[in-house]
């Protein structure tokens, strides 16, 4: 029933926005809330419902960094790589997480769909550099050791 609920929600989102093609971006935002990402078939469905070409919808969905066409993991790790964090060696944090979760720049979601690693330009927490956000929780002045432990703890939590 989960898929039906989601699909119903998409139809509801379209109706709430009056099936207005000018409201494509808010529609995509709301749909991404539902699915956690933008599935291809849903994008095509939206295109057909709004009477615009799928290529246009794809163009908008790939233009904004906010949108993702790939399914994301349950927990989203955002490591800041803005100027302040970068000089505080945020790359070592990213490397540590990649090594821990067996990820690469291209493959940023774990196979078990538990984690997605993203780098962001600035979290606005430069005083805490290097900074990281997991889901909605901020971690400041992290080190490779610290992040490994945080992730270990989360995995243990999940296993319970």
């Amino acid at each position: 029933m989960e898929n039906q609920g989601k699909f119903d929600k998409v139809c509801q989102i379209l109706d709430e926005n009056g099936r207005d093609k000018a409201r494509l971006i808010p529609i995509l935002q709301a749909v991404q809330e539902v699915y956690n990402y933008l599935p291809e078939e849903i994008l095509t469905f939206i295109a057909s419902a709004l009477d615009i070409s799928p290529a246009r919808v794809y163009g908008v969905a790939t233009f904004f960094a906010h949108f993702t066409l790939k399914a994301k993991g349950k927990h989203i790790i955002k490591v800041c790589d803005g100027t302040a964090c970068h000089v505080k060696r945020s790359t070592t944090i990213i490397d540590a997480i990649r090594a821990k979760l067996n990820l690469t720049a291209a493959e940023n979601t774990t196979k078990d769909m538990l984690f997605t690693l993203e780098t962001v330009s600035c979290l606005g927490a430069c005083g805490l550099a290097p900074a990281m956000v997991i889901d909605n929780e901020v971690y400041g002045q992290v080190t490779p050791e610290k992040v490994t432990k945080i992730i270990d703890d989360m995995i243990k939590q999940e296993e319970k």
Partner: peptide
């Protein structure tokens, strides 16, 4: 066809 992606990754392509 339409533009997809942005900046140095921008390209013109069919959907998806």
């Amino acid at each position: 066809i339409d533009f997809s992606f942005r900046g140095s990754h921008a390209t013109v392509s069919p959907s998806f």
